[in-house]
Design a protein around this nucleic acid. Structure first.
Length: 820
RNA sequence: GUGGGUGUGCCGGAGUGGUCAAACGGGACAGACUCAAAAUCUGUUGGUUCAUCCUUACCUAGGUUCGAAUCCUAGCACCCACACCA
């Protein structure tokens, strides 16, 4: 057996690719482009993990395939280098976030290069570099001009552990997304926002036409959460208090009103006698937030105030309720305990009366025996002139009635909120704003960008930027008077919302990017990353692209034509890989042990890349064995004549593997490769063409081994930049047709026998064949084999006799059958 | 609760109406090589059988069909995402 020194082979080809800049690209109007993108990593000090390796391998395989197909392929990588973890790690280890990040990136690059990826290393984007975040600031100013960036005092999610504000998307079940055990507190702070909601409708409507996974689209729809309903004005002390409802048909069933504990105007409703009660409840709320939100019981307190139901002028009590969300609708809801689950629970607890106004069609409701809210369909009762009306119709009618009287209107609500981008942290993009004593909020002048992060700050509690007086105190750009810089920095998701466009022109210091270059490369043809980004990053980047389109910097609507989510990679024990469990497998160690090609092959051959799977040491050994077998075979084989079966098999593989790669069905592609190799290694002589073609098919998966063997075989240039082998249409039908007559007889005979056993008489057999197979069937042979008269038709033949429409059952290799 | 998904042989996992006792990988077993082991190679891996036949099989129960792992209905189990949005 030949010595298989994969380490040496890998080094050799990685050096060659680097020296020759094999995968560096530039615009070429004569070539079709393909943009393969993996989500750029956050450069943590721990280095690459297996999930990264999987992510990059998936993108690299399709990139390599497309290169071989003749596309001009952009395949870049960069680093999402700003963000809280670097700052936290820096604090822990006593280093500066900048040094920490630089070291991490160095380490990442070294490891990424060992995987044999086709990255264009001249295009690396580092978001912590002022030459990048300058354009984040530039975009901020543009949004400010467009009225999409604004400041407001608002209720924010405050994580006491991070000592910063979190986006709604960063709050998971009431806990910080980074600290599973830390409850998020609510606080009012002045914050910068981007008006995501301006694009709510477009973000929602476009989804239907996008080639993204259905689950992701569904999740985004959910997240945007458009709902149609009615806004109704209730009256308290002569003032109007709007509530939003999707059930205006139940308005006669309102027996109380509930307001969110975080409602800004709450104080106005609390009467003197009930102040203590309300305060106690609010205090309790804070401690209750420790509990899981799901198990939270509905609780509240009476405010002492009453609201007037506009339709029947009934006075109903106003309660505070912990289940009412402050920033959805108006933060106040009308409660119909008989027909809403939450209202029912609340009413039961505080002994508030219920009133049935919807009568189910097939059974009776009784307000004394009511054990749960009835939320179904029915006809209206106890609703004055609307009595007897279908409730769906009543939704319309009640709304119209209220509108005529000026007491309400149709309304659309979104769950989607504006994006709070302010962070009270150091390691982020400074917001280019100056607060002047006289002029107020003043944007930094464009020519003063970038506002660089000062290196000299002290880390501890709160925002480190506050510790550098020199940086904070500036002159107002407008009046030259005393002013201070904004010390909030931007959410790291801002940086990652448009980086994929910067790859098209990463070193431009005159403008955000050369529009021509972006229009050539973008949008991304495939975007590969984890499903956990479905609602944050993937909505923000869609928003950014729409904004950039509206200021005429791009001409497309969506960032990525196709989106692919890789599965989660677990440890060998089936648990998540984690240091505490000790089941982490490091990509670099694996490369040392089995080689990068084995790792790449293993990662995509255990399961479909979009499914979760477990690491398996046995599995990677299997991949290693296969590669070594291939290596060994090529080192020993002699070129000669290729048997026909091998050519047919190869031809089929060329087609299938290509299709599998296009569909990210890499697992099947590797199976096909194994089968093909199995066939090939049976004989001892093969033509050079077949050997070359096999290496081409292998190259996207195991590029180093493929290059080495390609060289040994005397192939021209690099296999990586050779062309994908051609599929020949004719040979395939030859392949399936070889024994078609016998196959048909073999299948039809037992079928016929069964029918005849049952007493049916058969005199004629009609066969419906796919058009390209029609020459394969021999009427005489079939008649001899079947002992009946046989008729053969093409499925496309409009004159054929086919009363039971059996023609549509025809498949390659097997015609549709009808007995007469 | 809402939405999505899955259920296949010892395990992972293909398979969307006939070519399926069911790809491919792993494991197991047997044999070759070897003093021996590892590696490698060959074969076997539902039952019965020399073989054919037959029989039992793709969560369960029904159904459609000449024919079902594949289609339909109901149920069970598991997984993921979102979750008090009025």
């Amino acid at each position: 057996m030949a010595d298989f020194n994969f380490g040496k082979i890998e080094k050799k080809w990685q050096k060659r690719w680097a020296d020759e800049k094999t995968f560096y690209v530039s615009e070429d109007s004569k070539k079709k482009k393909f943009y393969s993108l993996e989500m750029f990593p956050y450069p943590s000090g721990y280095g690459l993990h297996m999930g990264h390796a999987l992510n990059y391998t998936i993108g690299d395989i399709i990139a390599r395939y497309k290169i071989m197909q003749g596309y001009n392929v952009l395949h870049p990588i960069g680093f999402d280098a700003l963000g809280l973890p670097a700052e936290n790690a820096a604090i822990k280890e006593g280093t500066h976030p900048q040094d920490y990040t630089r070291n991490s990136i160095k380490n990442f690059v070294m490891q990424q290069k060992r995987l044999g990826l086709t990255y264009d290393w001249a295009r690396v984007v580092d978001t912590s570099d002022p030459s990048y975040y300058k354009w984040d600031q530039w975009l901020f100013l543009k949004m400010l001009e467009a009225g999409l960036a604004y400041q407001k005092e608002s209720l924010v999610n405050w994580c006491p552990e991070c000592k910063t504000v979190l986006a709604n998307e960063q709050v998971v079940d009431g806990k910080c997304w980074r600290h599973e055990k830390t409850s998020v507190e609510s606080k009012y702070l002045k914050q910068w926002f981007f008006k995501l909601t301006n694009y709510a409708d477009e973000l929602l409507d476009n989804l239907d036409n996008m080639n993204w996974p259905e689950t992701t689209k569904q999740m985004q729809k959910h997240w945007i959460g458009k709902s149609y309903g009615t806004e109704i004005d209730f009256e308290v002390d002569g003032k109007k208090w709007p509530v939003f409802t999707t059930r205006p048909d139940t308005i006669y069933g309102v027996t109380f009103v509930v307001i969110s504990p975080y409602h800004k105007e709450l104080k106005r409703l609390v009467t003197a006698e009930h102040k203590t009660e309300v305060d106690n409840f609010l205090k309790k709320l804070k401690s209750v937030s420790e509990k899981d939100l799901i198990e939270l019981e509905k609780e509240g307190a009476f405010t002492g105030s009453y609201a007037l139901n506009p339709i029947n002028h009934e006075k109903v009590p106003i309660y505070i309720g912990n289940f009412v969300v402050a920033d959805y609708g108006s933060g106040m809801v009308m409660a119909v305990p008989a027909h809403d689950k939450r209202d029912y629970e609340f009413a039961k607890k505080y002994d508030i009366p219920m009133k049935i106004v919807i009568d189910p069609v097939d059974f009776e409701l009784d307000d004394r025996s009511l054990t749960e809210a009835y939320t179904g369909e029915g006809t209206l009762i106890n609703s004055e002139k609307f009595n007897g009306m279908e409730n769906e119709k009543a939704k319309e009618e009640v709304t119209n009635f209220l509108k005529e009287k000026g007491l309400g209107k149709k309304s659309v609500q979104f769950r989607l909120k504006d994006w709070g981008i302010s962070r009270q942290r150091y390691w982020g993009t400074p917001i280019p704003i100056i607060h002047c004593e006289k002029c107020g909020v003043v944007p930094v002048n464009y020519e003063d960008l970038p506002i660089k992060l000062p290196k000299d700050v002290k880390f501890g509690e709160g925002n480190p930027l506050l510790t550098n007086e020199k940086w904070i105190n500036v002159k107002c750009p407008r009046c030259m008077g005393k002013a201070k810089r904004e010390t909030d920095t931007m959410d790291t998701f801002v940086n990652s919302s448009w980086y994929f466009l910067r790859y098209a022109d990463p070193n431009n210091d005159k403008e955000i990017f050369d529009k021509k270059k972006v229009l050539y490369w973008c949008p991304t043809d495939v975007y590969i990353g984890g499903a956990e980004h479905a609602c944050m990053h993937l909505i923000y980047s869609r928003y950014y692209v729409k904004f950039l389109r509206d200021i005429e910097l791009v001409n497309f609507d969506e960032p990525a034509l196709r989106l692919f989510h890789q599965g989660m990679l677990h440890g060998e024990d089936g648990d998540k890989m984690s240091k505490s469990k000790g089941n982490v497998v490091n990509p670099l160690d694996t490369i040392e042990k089995y080689g990068a090609d084995s790792l790449r092959l293993f990662l995509v051959s255990v399961a479909s890349p979009d499914k979760d799977f477990d690491w398996s040491e046995k599995g990677i050994q299997g991949s290693f064995r296969f590669i070594r077998k291939v290596y060994d075979f090529f080192m020993n084989t002699k070129t000669g004549k290729t048997p026909l079966e091998i050519e047919i098999k190869l031809n089929k593989s060329i087609k299938d593997i290509g299709e599998y790669i296009e569909n990210f069905d890499y697992r099947k592609a590797t199976i096909e490769l194994r089968e093909l190799f199995e066939e090939m290694s049976k004989g001892n002589e093969l033509g050079k063409k077949v050997l070359e073609d096999f290496l081409k098919l292998l190259a996207p998966f195991c590029p180093h081994t493929a290059e080495e063997l390609w060289e040994k075989l005397g192939g021209k240039g690099l296999v990586s930049t050779s062309s994908w082998p051609e599929f020949k249409e004719i040979e395939l039908s030859k392949g399936t047709g070889i024994n078609m007559n016998e196959k048909v007889i073999e299948n039809v005979l037992p079928l016929m026998k069964r029918l005849e056993d049952r007493g049916e008489k058969i005199s004629k057999v009609h066969l419906y064949v796919l058009p390209f197979e029609i020459g394969e069937l021999d009427k005489k042979k079939l008649e001899k084999g079947l002992g009946k008269e046989v008729f053969i038709y093409s499925v496309k033949d409009s004159m054929k006799l086919d009363p039971e429409d059996r023609a549509k059952k025809a498949k390659p290799g097997m015609p549709g059958i009808w007995f007469e």
